[in-house]
Computed example of a mutant assay.
Amino acid sequence: MVTRAQQIGVVVCLAFVTALTILRVSDPPLLRLARDLTFDQYQRLVPRTFENQPVRVIDIDEASLHEFGQWPWPRNRIAALVNRLSDLGASAIAFDILFAEPDRLSPRNVVRDVTGIDPSLLGKLPDNDEIFARSLSGRPVVLGFGLSNAGNYLPPVKVGFAYTGESPFGAPPAIRAATPLQPQLEANAAGLGHISLNPGASSAVVRTVPLFLSDGKQLYPSLALEA
C-alpha cells in the first residue's frame, strides 16, 4: 500500500522534473550565461592539449610593420606573399582580410586623384589589384568575405555540396547579405569563405564557430572549411 508520504514524494519529484524540463526548454538568458561561464571554466581547468598541425599563421606583427610600413600594404606586396608561399609548397592559402575596396596605394589610383592628369596615361600605370588577381589565378587561395546588414549581395559559391535526407539549408545561422570583394579578386580566388566568428551571438567571447551559413537556398562555408 502506498503511503501518503510516498504519494507526496512522487508528486514533488514530478513537479521538480517538470520545472527543470520547462526551464531547459525555455532556456532563459541567466541559464545560458551560467552554462557559458561553466564551459569557460572547464577550458581554464583542463585546456585542450596542443597538437602540432601543418598550419602556419603569417602574422602582420610589429616587426612586419616596422620593416614594410603601416597597414594596409599595397596589394602588389600581398601578391608577392602569395607567390612566395606558393613557391614554398603551400597546399592552401587563406586570407582573413577583407579586400572590399580598390587598393588606394595602387599607382593608377594615386595618379587618378591628381588634378589635370591625362586620362590616357592611367591605362599605362600598374594596378595593384590586377597584379594581386594574377597572383591568385590557378592557385589554392581562399579569400574571406564579411557579413553585411545592407544590400542583397551574396558571394558566388565555388564548391559543391552533397547531402542525403532532410535539407540542411535551414540549420546553419542565416546570412542575409555580404560585403562585395573586388570583382577581379573574387573571380580569380579558388574559394571564398566567411570570416565572421560568431554571427548573431550577443557575447564577445567566441565559443563556437559555424562551419556554414545559409540563406535558405545555399550553403556558404567558413574560411577554415573552404581552405
Rank of each mutant, 00 (worst) to 15 (best):
L88H: 14
Y42D: 13
S91K: 12
R84Y: 14
A92H: 13
T49S: 14
A92N: 04
T49K: 13
R32Q: 14
P74Y: 02
W71M: 02
A80H: 02
R44D: 13
S26Q: 09
P74M: 00
A94K: 01
I58C: 08
I78T: 05
H66F: 06
Y42N: 10
A94F: 03
I22P: 00
Q70M: 06
L88G: 09
H66V: 11
S64L: 08
R75Q: 01
L98I: 15
I93F: 04
Q43W: 15
L37Q: 11
S86H: 12
L88V: 10
D40L: 15
L33M: 13
Q43D: 11
S26C: 07
L81A: 03
L23F: 10
F50W: 11
R77Y: 15
D59P: 03
S26D: 04
I78A: 07
Y42S: 14
G69V: 06
L37C: 06
R56C: 09
S26L: 11
E62N: 13
R75L: 04
Y42C: 15
P72A: 07
V82W: 01
L65T: 07
S64E: 09
Y42E: 13
P54Q: 05
L30Y: 07
I78K: 01
P72G: 00
D59K: 14
W73N: 02
V55M: 12
L33E: 03
E51D: 13
L31N: 02
R77W: 14
F95H: 06
I22M: 15
D61K: 05
